[in-house]
Amino acid sequence: MKSVVTTVVTAADAAGRFPSTSDLESVQGSLQRAAARLEAAEKLAGNIDAVAQEAYDACIRKYSYLNNAGEANSTDTFKAKCLRDIKHYMRLINYCLVVGGTGPLDEWGIAGQREVYRALNLPTAPYVEALSFARNRGCAPRDLSAQALTEYNALLDYVINSLS
């Protein structure tokens, strides 16, 4: 799993040397930013059901045709699966906030995503809408601190980019 520490260790190992001062310096840099990331991860973990539900509602509001018979949100099973998907992305964002890199999203969310949605005949625009809603919903300092919100929004932007 890619993170600052694993990147540093991989580079040091490739050169066959002990961790140098500059290696330790870059780890120190990532630890300094980690407090804000963990704050965002904590808030997201505590509110993930509400966050996912709001984002899901927003995308169904915009693309109400999805409720029509035969569409992706037509039955209760489909609705539950749509909500689950949004929650799945939010959980991966929680992981990325903890790791401090996009490793979990890359490996478990984005790799193969396009192929899966194409095979299941799912539109990606509603996902973008749901995540964009979440992207613009967070507010500092009401929900979390400014730096934590920046880290959280950056990861949402990353997923939105991968889908569009």
Binding site: A45, R91, Y95, V99
Partner: peptide, 17 residues
């Protein structure tokens, strides 16, 4: 950090608490 993520993913739960 990634160790915590991998073990949380095994039970598909968020990392908190």
């Amino acid at each position: 950090f990634s160790r915590a993520v991998v073990s949380a993913d095994a039970s598909t739960k968020c990392i908190g608490g």
